[in-house]
């Protein structure tokens, strides 16, 4: 992990010994970057949707606190991930300029930052909201940091399949924050994100395959080839579409959600079909972009459906 960082320090002046300029000083943007703000925005959005879709209400201050805890917890997991992967990040074009491999933040400092934020987010969630939501938040952080980052990511091409569970927690946490329990609908929301993760990340892996190969990360296209990956994307998309319409089929949501999920599902299947055929080189990139939009619109439809139901 420390090779790239060591090389950054090695480039410091040899006479630097006691020179305080030899110590890298990050500004606040580097710490923000450590939290993976784009990932956090998606996590907060799905957490908010779980919170809004849940029956009952939460004081606005407490709801904002719950979202803040979800955001900080997700950011802490992202910071831990960047700490642990700083060696492979240095080898990949997409990640080489991150604060740790670029030498702007010391690894130990990043780890302390991650642990402090994780502890604070779980403690505040437990004290201010409830301990079920705090337990789920802690579970999601530990799952992402230890099961996905430390255990699976470098060992198996199924890394993102199982690791996807970590990203599927936020709607469950948002729901638990309001109701204090977990029922069928939040579990289905969990399943949707869990099944969305493979086609989303394998689309990325198809067009960033060389990067992953160079870093020695056993993503599916690197280990099993593009053809197998394209087929897996196609199969997982079917499972995703089935899970996405299940809340409507089970009568847990209304027509607004059902029609949106069906329409989006058709579009996702069309994109996955193009990827599976393998004739269009841009198809994986298009599917990757669409998959992000898909999740935003699907969860927004869930909230709209709930609000329409309340208004009626």
């Amino acid at each position: 992990m420390t090779d790239s960082v060591a090389s950054a320090y090695a480039s410091a002046p040899a006479s630097a010994g006691a020179d305080w300029r030899a110590v890298p000083v990050a500004d606040w943007r580097d710490y923000l970057e450590l939290l993976k703000p784009r990932v956090v925005s998606l996590v907060v959005f799905t957490g908010l949707c779980g919170l809004l879709a849940a029956p009952g209400s939460l004081h606005p201050t407490l709801a904002l606190t719950a979202l803040l805890c979800i955001a900080v917890g997700a950011g802490a997991a992202g910071a831990f991930n960047q700490w642990f992967e700083s060696d492979t990040d240095a080898l990949m074009r997409r990640t080489a300029s991150r604060p740790i491999p670029a030498g702007r933040i010391e690894p130990a400092e990043a780890l302390a930052f991650a642990v402090a934020l994780a502890g604070a987010s779980v403690a505040i969630m437990g004290l201010a909201i409830n301990w079920l939501a705090a337990g789920l938040l802690l579970g999601s952080i530990l799952f992402y940091t230890h099961v996905y980052t430390v255990w699976l990511k470098r060992r198996t091409p199924q890394n993102i399949v199982i690791g996807g569970a970590a990203g599927a927690f936020p709607p469950l946490i948002g729901w638990a924050a309001v109701t204090g329990d977990v029922s069928t609908l939040p579990v289905l929301l969990f399943a949707i994100i869990f099944l969305w993760t493979p086609p989303h990340f394998w689309s990325l892996a198809l067009f960033a395959c060389k990067d992953y190969e160079r870093a020695g990360i056993p993503m599916l296209p690197v280990v099993a080839g593009e053809r197998v990956t394209r087929l897996q994307i196609w199969l997982y998309t079917w499972a995703l579409v089935a899970a996405s319409v299940a809340p409507w089929a089970l009568g847990l949501t209304g027509a607004v959600y059902g029609l949106t999920a069906s329409g989006l599902g058709v579009l996702f299947l069309a994109g996955a079909w193009r990827v599976w055929r393998g004739t269009d080189l841009k198809a994986p990139k298009l599917l990757f972009g669409f998959s992000i939009l898909y999740l935003f619109v699907l969860f927004a439809a869930l909230v709209a459906d709930r609000l329409a139901g309340v208004a009626a």
């Binding site: 990050a26 500004d27 710490y31 004081h59 407490l62 505040i124």
Partner: peptide, 25 residues
């Protein structure tokens, strides 16, 4: 300097947050 100001902002925000949580609870 920027990092110190950011740290101050975080600390003040936490004080305000704890106050608001207490009032809400």
């Amino acid at each position: 300097r920027g990092r110190n100001w950011a740290l101050l902002a975080v600390l003040v925000a936490m004080v305000v947050l704890f106050y608001l949580i207490t009032i809400a609870r």
